[in-house]
Amino acid sequence: METSEMETNRRIMGVLAHADAEMLDQKFAGLGHVPGWRFLRKPETGLVMLQGRVSGTGAAFNFGEVTVTRAAVSLETGEAGHAYALGRDKRKAEQSAIVHAMWQSGKYQQEIETEVIGPLERFAAEDDERKVKETTPTKVDFFTLVRGED
């Protein structure tokens, strides 16, 4: 896979992984037409061992696990879609895999981009922005006082 193709796939899968499940469900229900599809891999929940880095920047160490759910589908037109996301939401994995597959089909790409990926991406960015704004006023300036005479 070429780098640019890999990066766009990472973007689509990333937006879907970060998506709020309810919002994805809503956008999915709003799609005009979903082509026929079948599972390549039924939604499955498992564990991923999170690795940290020694002192934050050094060698990897095993830190603790996280639940992850994945799924893969293939459209009747042949495109394969994959989903991986933190958590145990199998419906989200199924819908994400279908959306990823549809995004790869010339016929549906535009609709998926404007109706699903775009709004989910904007919503996530707004949510991030809101969190940073709420954190901002807690930034402090400590000052030290010199006591006594020098």
Binding site: E44, T45, G46, L47, V48, M49, L50, Q51, G52, R53, G56, T57, A60, N62, F63, E65, V66, T67, V68, R70, D128, K131, V132, T135
Partner: peptide, 21 residues
Amino acid sequence: RTTLPRFGASRPLETREMRVE
């Protein structure tokens, strides 16, 4: 956790890129 399969290990987490709260 013992009831779930392990898919593998993550890439090492980059705490330097944390979205700081």
